[in-house]
Design a protein around this nucleic acid. Structure first.
Length: 501
RNA sequence: GGGCGUGUAGCUCAGUCCGGUAGAGCAGCGGCCUUUUAAGCCGUUGGUCGCAGGUUCGAAUCCUGCCACGCUCACCA
């Protein structure tokens, strides 16, 4: 039962009906504050001197009540301020209503002069106190607060009321995105919106969510990536585009995966992946400076340093550096297998089925990623595993692609886009065959995308940055659920989800 | 999906090993109190012990199944 009624709640509902019987509106329509809490604190000296009457509103967080006086703090959108009521200054009627009907958690408005208490705290002496909204549910305990992760995620509204750092994290999330937008807008990028519901999905290897359009009687997929639409836009002549929006992937949930997550997707005509690399480094340094005010910060147990030029390594170099193993893309599978098998945890049978490229990537993912603490650009991914990327001008086995790792997190993925329609068509056909063989995350054939490429996609480089992970990194949060306001959870009660009954 | 852990009052937690009438603090309620800030003092209400079965004279405690959450492994970004 979500709407359980305990004694406290019933009692407060009773207060509401008693107030109504007395002609007091427990939910009045508006209040006109003259100041935010912070403005009063920032301008305290002048306000005290001028005896100006201020009005503030907010939620009562804790009450210290005496017989004929009381102190309490209210919290508004920007902070907290102490309110004082006392006989002689506050009308008897307002004090009586406070005494009888107002509880911690209620939202109130006050009007009065600013003064400083004996202990020096800037406080508003209420000459008027009105209830603006009655809270019937009690706030969590005042100094342990709300700890239970499940309740914090399910009832984020409570989490935000009582946990200041949670509030700060989500403000920082917005600042990070704002800073990113501002940077990109200033560089001449055009922010675009592309379909979330797609008849053909693509741009990544992932299982989609499937939905249905009734009027058109057609299957639609929630997008797993906007990539193919962005490149259509570059074909159309938008040379610098980006989008910061949600992707949906029907896959596992973990501390770094939520079924819906936010990506920056960005394309620049006439660039290759090296140009994008420089942009990424500059962009992230800019955000860190602007939002954190520093290029060095802590993530979990590590000190992350954004200053200086970030390390660039090819995958093969990274493997050699962090495992001592020397490999080449053109080595026979059996040879690579012999070297990789002893160091990765996988059955011989599983490994036998992997290609050279897949074995090398497996080694990288299981042994190297976990060692990439400081910002590291890992360059040159196998072409066979990068079906939308262009082959390297120097080595046809690898694609012009990099991923950026910071604090073991994969933050960015970028490449020089494959713009040869014929080559892309062949890759799609190969992927389509894999789908027929039951590979669920292989690409769907997208003939319209090929048609777009046939009109000519200029040399272009594209980028994806996982915003949630970037926010985790910059706010030092170890779970993606700490940076998504309403993360996906199972239904609170099994009967809430008809599928499971 | 596998492994480990957690679930007791509105909140934060004891109690479970070793079965014997369910506890504390905060919040609430009733008092006293006109400068408190974890206000104080006196008194007091509040519980399907996650759910369902089982063992037992007796289960929060032992057993089985299920549910949710956390961590972790696998998959993925």
């Amino acid at each position: 039962m979500v709407l359980e009624r305990n004694e406290i709640i019933l009692n407060r509902y009773r207060k509401i009906s008693e107030m109504r019987a007395e002609g007091i509106d427990p939910f009045p329509h508006k209040f006109d504050p003259t100041h935010k809490s912070k403005e009063i604190l920032d301008n305290a000296e002048e306000l005290i001197k001028s005896k100006e009457k201020v009005r503030v509103a907010g939620r009562i967080m804790s009450i210290r009540s005496f017989g004929k006086a009381a102190f309490f703090h209210i919290m508004d959108g920007v902070g907290r301020i102490q309110i004082h009521i006392r006989k002689g200054s506050t009308p008897d009627r307002d004090r009586e209503i406070f005494q009888r009907y107002i509880d911690s958690g209620d939202i109130v408005g006050v009007e009065g002069e600013v003064f400083r208490t004996k202990t020096g705290e800037v406080t508003v002496l209420a000459e008027r106190l009105v209830l603006l909204a009655k809270a019937v549910r009690p706030l969590p305990e005042k100094w342990h607060g709300l700890r239970d992760r499940e309740i914090r995620y399910r009832q984020r509204y409570v989490d935000l009321i009582v946990n200041e750092d949670v509030r700060r994290t989500f403000i920082q999330r917005t600042q990070i995105i704002n800073s990113m937008r501002q940077y990109l807008n200033e560089k001449g990028y055009l922010e675009v919106e592309t379909p979330m519901m797609q008849p053909v999905y693509g741009g990544a290897m992932a299982r989609p969510f499937i939905t249905h359009h009734h009027a058109l009687d057609m299957t639609l997929y929630l997008r797993i990536a906007p990539e193919l639409y962005h490149k259509r836009l570059v074909v159309g002549g938008f040379e610098k585009v980006y989008e910061i929006n949600r992707n949906f992937r029907n896959e596992g949930i973990s501390t770094v995966h939520n079924p819906e997550f936010t990506m920056l997707e960005l394309y620049t005509a006439y660039w290759d992946y090296r140009d994008t690399l420089l942009l990424v480094e500059d962009l992230l340094k800019h955000i860190a400076r602007e939002v954190l005010g520093t290029l060095t910060f802590t993530y979990d147990k590590d000190e992350i340093d954004f200053s200086g030029e970030w390390q660039r390594l090819t995958i093969l170099e990274a493997i050699k550096k962090h495992t001592g193993i020397e490999l080449n893309w053109d080595q026979p599978q059996q040879e690579v297998l012999r070297v990789v098998a002893p160091v990765v945890e996988a059955s011989a049978k599983e490994l036998q089925e992997l290609t050279t490229d897949e074995l090398i990537m497996l080694l990288f993912e299981s042994k190297v990623e976990e060692q990439l603490i400081q910002p590291t650009f890992v360059m040159e991914f196998p072409r066979s595993l990068s079906p939308l990327a262009k082959a390297s001008a120097d080595n046809p086995a690898v694609a012009e692609r990099f991923e950026l790792f910071i604090a073991r997190l994969e933050i960015a993925n970028a490449y020089t886009e494959l713009n040869d329609p014929e080559e892309q068509y062949e890759i799609f056909k190969e992927q389509a065959r894999k789908r027929q063989d039951g590979v669920v995350d292989a690409f769907m054939m997208d003939e319209d995308y090929i048609r777009a490429l046939e009109y000519g996609l200029p040399p272009t480089s594209g980028l994806g940055i996982g915003i949630d992970r970037l926010v985790m990194l910059l706010t030092n949060r170890q779970s993606i659920r700490e940076v998504i306001l309403f993360p996906h959870l199972r239904p609170e009660r099994p009967e809430d989800n008809p599928e499971t009954v």
